[in-house]
């Protein structure tokens, strides 16, 4: 089998000339980027480079000043966030956003229930829907939370909540996964486990991974984009990024690539 190559795939997400300024601070400066089907694309950059601002624009929580966002060929630049989500945009948050009073499985059930925006059915109990329960259990097992289905989200450990966020995002069978620093705050073992989990998701979903952990990025990514002061200074394969002098100067700070 030939080596998998992003170039051969159709783009799921295409960002074209995106710009967002807060007063004099340009947080997103003419960013053009695409994510292709089955690709794991990592977005790296120093703190304050505008990674989160970019993610929130892709999700629609923040409106860009200029530029376009195409999702699966469709212009979604002006679409409200809940509608983008219904098109198949799944995400996790840098600071976990779960329903703390719901159990782990209820959080996943919610995700399954809201694929079409949620139901006004006031009679049937989603907890009695055997099909949805089975599929939620599968998702929990997939991220390694199979034994903790009944635990309230609030009582889960930090790393487990990160895993649950991924299960919630997967449960809607998204066409594109946006993972905003899934390794943040994890210990070395948890990071290794998360890397294995993401490696398992690779190819099944198009993934945009924002991450600080370089080892994980280099182990997982097909392509890497580097964002510095709102500008995309480089996009290329892992090998290219490692050897690019401009990236090393701007971001890796000359430290030996690991």
């Amino acid at each position: 089998m030939a080596e998998w190559s992003a170039q051969q795939q159709a783009p799921i997400l295409a960002i074209d000339g995106l710009r967002k300024a807060f007063g004099a601070l340009v947080a997103t400066d003419d960013v053009t980027l695409d994510i292709r089907a089955g690709e794991l694309h990592a977005l790296i950059g120093p703190n304050g480079a505008g990674k989160s601002t970019l993610i929130t624009q892709i999700c629609g929580e923040l409106k860009p000043d200029a530029g376009r966002i195409l999702f699966d060929g469709r212009d979604v630049t002006r679409l409200r966030p809940h509608l983008r989500s219904r098109l198949g945009l799944g995400r996790t948050f840098q600071i976990t956003q779960l329903c703390p009073d719901f159990s782990a499985i209820e959080n996943v059930l919610l995700s399954i229930e809201t694929r079409g925006g949620g139901s006004f059915d006031m009679v049937s109990n989603p907890r009695g829907n055997a099909g949805a329960i089975a599929s939620a259990r599968e998702r929990l097992a997939e991220v390694g939370l199979g034994d903790l289905a009944a635990r309230r989200a609030e009582t889960l450990a930090h790393g487990q909540r990160r895993q649950l966020e991924i299960a919630v995002a997967l449960a809607r069978e998204p066409r594109l996964l946006l993972l905003d620093e899934p390794m943040a705050g994890l210990g070395p073992e948890e990071t290794a486990a998360m890397t294995r989990l993401l490696d398992g998701l690779k190819r099944r979903y198009a993934i945009l991974l924002v991450e600080h952990d370089m080892a994980a990025v280099f182990a997982l990514a097909d392509r890497v984009s580097v964002l510095v002061y709102g500008r995309l200074i480089f996009t290329g394969t892992v090998a290219e990024v490692r050897s690019d002098p401009q990236v090393r100067a701007a971001y890796l700070g000359g430290e030996p690539a690991c």
């Binding site: 009073d101 229930e113 809201t114 059915d121 989603p126």
Partner: peptide, 27 residues
Amino acid sequence: RIVNSRFGLVLQALRQSERRSINLGVD
């Protein structure tokens, strides 16, 4: 019944995390 229904699930999710709910497709 309402509280435990599919509607109630969304209503309660909105109470706990509006941001999460919107990003799951809820208006």
